[in-house]
Simulated assay, not measured.
Amino acid sequence: MGLETDWYSGAGWLRLLAPLEWAYRRLSERRRQRLTQPENQWLAPVPVIIVGNISVGGSGKTPLTLNLIDKLRARGYRPGVVSRGYGTKAPHYPFFVNADTAPEQGGDEPCLIVRRSGVPLVIDPDRPAAVRALLDTADVDIVISDDGLQHYRLGRDLELAVVDAARGLGNARCLPAGPLREPPERLNEVDRVILNGQGRFAFPGASSMELQPGALVELATGKSLDAEQWQGARQVHAVAGIGHPKRFFDTLESLGFKPLPHPLPDHAAITAETLSFDDELPVILTEKDAVKCGDWVKPGVWALKVDARLDEEFDDWLDRQLVRLQQKYGSP
């Protein structure tokens, strides 16, 4: 995690990587120009909403995707989701993820999305192939592409870019000199920027999103309770294999816990050894990490659910966009 720390702390030595950054930016722009040509880009027969970001690592895309699923269903749509399936070893692609799919095959985030929402979901590094499989098999009339902003072979109707307001864009430089997949100006081209949480980063016209903590669920028993109902020790082992673990630790503190932080790389494997400590204190995981726990998990290991809450202006904006899309594709 050393390089990532330097990206966000403004380490001066990263200027030495400027030639590599220049080459990356040139190649990235050429790739985008090539893939967005009409002959190279596939357009789905239903609306496609992209949820992504311009930086590497987590920013809150999965909670936003779950929130969008609920919003679209409330408006009469039948959404489906496609995802790359980062780090997966699926038996084939396209691959349908269901509630029983192992995270090793389906990916931690796709498995979480399906278990929380029951939405039809297909993983495939080839996003157009994933959408075609989804539309051929499931009753879907709108598609959300999770983490698909740079997958330009898939045409899109709306682009939503999520930015962690606390970390912002780091040093605002592209790989490998900084955390950005695309230059900061790319945010000016998306349909909506969404700022996750509170922080110094600001963007004109952006919507705000907060991750609201929900129930604590004991993995071995399925027991569920609110933080106010917690009767155990307030000092807990906090395990987080997400893009910004500190946000999870801060959330636990806001709920009255005294977390002993155990940050892990994003998408890290969770094993019995990961959760073994030399005491009897409770363990609290992120919900994304919890999907990687199997039958081996012992009592005393809990997951904290979180839900995205967006400002009212986002709902108004989304309604206006859906009216526009209905003129193109018809009503749901």
Rank of each mutant, 00 (worst) to 15 (best):
V131E: 07
A130D: 10
V48S: 00
V81A: 08
R115Y: 12
A130Y: 11
G58D: 10
G58I: 08
D124L: 11
H92G: 01
L66Y: 06
G87N: 05
D108F: 10
C111Y: 03
P94V: 14
N53R: 12
K71L: 15
L72W: 07
L72Y: 09
V46N: 00
P103I: 05
S83L: 07
S59P: 00
L64N: 03
V48Y: 02
S55I: 13
V114T: 09
L68H: 06
V119Y: 07
F95G: 14
K71S: 12
T65Q: 00
A129M: 09
I113A: 08
V51N: 02
P128V: 11
T88G: 09
P79Y: 09
A74I: 12
R75A: 14
I54A: 00
D124T: 13
V48M: 03
P63D: 08
P94S: 13
N98D: 15
L112P: 02
L66H: 05
G60I: 06
P110C: 07
R127Y: 11
V46D: 00
V56C: 03
E104G: 14
E109P: 08
G57Y: 14
K71M: 15
S117R: 12
G106V: 01
P120T: 06
L121C: 03
G106H: 09
R127A: 12
R127M: 13
L68E: 06
A99Y: 00
I113W: 01
G107E: 11
L66N: 06
L68D: 07
V82D: 11
A99T: 11
R132I: 01
I54G: 00
V131H: 03
V46Q: 01
L112N: 04
P125T: 04
R78N: 08
C111R: 10
V114M: 08
A130Q: 10
G87A: 12
F96Y: 06
G118Q: 04
L72C: 07
D124C: 15
F96W: 05
P110E: 08
V122Y: 06
Q105F: 01
Y77A: 04
G76Y: 13
D70C: 01
V114E: 04
V46F: 03
I123F: 12
V48K: 03
T88V: 14
Y77C: 03
I69E: 05
K89P: 00
D108S: 09
G60D: 10
F95I: 15
R75I: 15
P128W: 12
L64C: 08
Y77N: 03
V131Y: 01
Y93R: 11
V46C: 02
K89F: 05
S83K: 03
A74S: 14
R84P: 01
G118K: 06
L64A: 04
K89E: 10
T62A: 01
R78T: 11
L112V: 02
V82G: 13
P94K: 14
P120R: 04
Q105E: 15
E109L: 12
F95K: 13
R116E: 12
V97F: 14
F96Q: 13
T88F: 11
R78M: 12
T101S: 11
R73T: 04
D108G: 08
G80L: 14
I49N: 06
I69D: 05
P103V: 11
V56K: 09
L68V: 06
R116C: 05
D126R: 13
V81L: 10
